[in-house]
Amino acid sequence: MTGSAADNGGDGGRGHPVVRFQSFLHGGTSSLLSALPTLLVFPVYKTVFRQQIHNTPVHQAVRQLYKEGPVKLYRGVAPPLLMRTLNGTLLFGLQDTLLRQLSCSPPNAISASASSALAGFGAGLVEAAVFTPLERVQNVLQNGQNDRQLPTLKSVLARLRSQGRVRGYYRAFLPVTARNTLGSSLYFGLKGPVCDVVAGQGLPPLASSFVSGTVTSMAISLTLYPLSVLVANMQAQAGGEMKGVRACWQALWRSRQRSVVLLYRGGSLVILRSCITWGITTAIYDRQQKRSN
């Protein structure tokens, strides 16, 4: 999918409900098929998470996980697997639906890339509203400091429920929204043009989509990585003082000794994860969309 109107079903199929449903189905399928790599790289993700909240070098984070043992290594894996599948379904489906609505505007009113980016922004907004509670649960589960007080998923849910919606499940909603809307907007706005450039070098469509998803996601992950670190630190604790976004950012910046290098600790592993998951997801989704059009 390059982001043009033709690639999104043409004029004749824009309003057809089956066409809209296919986008949701293809998004969910592509994300589900990339769930296996998500399982494989989950220890990498958890290592990054420990670096984000404890500000430790990679070898210390790995040693910490090793001491906890293989059973706890995959504690918290269920939410990201569930999020991965549902996220793809909602994100790709909503973006395509919004894009079809925007494509009904007067010709040349807005470029194809800008339309894709704007539709991605709207999809990212809904995504944040739906998935912030799942991300909150995931981050609490992955924080080893919560293992004794909150040993099970049920205990985590009970604790968050007792704190109310804003302090509990929707903790860090504003930075999550900023990250998701910007990330989705950039992803859908850039992946089409990047795919066209790569395809112009002679690569087949599947390889072009994979490279496009990989490069685009890599750039977005690095750009928005500080927001991900902020979200992880705000959501990892299930109790104690609940500071606002500004106070949490200032505390995080001080804890990183006001160093951008320390703030980006674990960023290289984020690139690896993005290359695997979003490259595969983009390639599968684009292939399914082109077959159905």
Rank of each mutant, 00 (worst) to 15 (best):
G10V: 09
R14I: 11
G15A: 15
V18L: 11
V19A: 15
Q22H: 15
S23T: 12
F24K: 04
F24E: 01
H26S: 09
G28E: 00
T29E: 08
T29C: 14
T29L: 13
L33N: 01
L33I: 12
S34F: 02
P37A: 02
V41S: 06
V41W: 07
V44D: 08
V44W: 10
Y45C: 12
V48L: 11
N55C: 15
T56H: 13
T56V: 12
H59N: 14
Q60A: 15
V62C: 12
Q64K: 07
L65S: 11
L65Q: 03
K67Q: 14
E68C: 07
V71I: 10
L73Y: 00
R75L: 01
R75P: 00
V77C: 03
A78M: 05
A78S: 04
L82G: 05
M83Q: 02
T89R: 00
T89I: 06
D96Y: 02
T97W: 08
L98R: 04
L99W: 04
L99K: 07
R100L: 11
R100D: 04
Q101I: 07
S103G: 14
S105A: 08
A112M: 00
L118Q: 01
F121I: 08
A123N: 00
G124R: 04
V126Q: 07
E127C: 12
A129H: 11
V130Q: 03
T132N: 14
T132A: 04
P133S: 09
E135K: 09
E135Y: 12
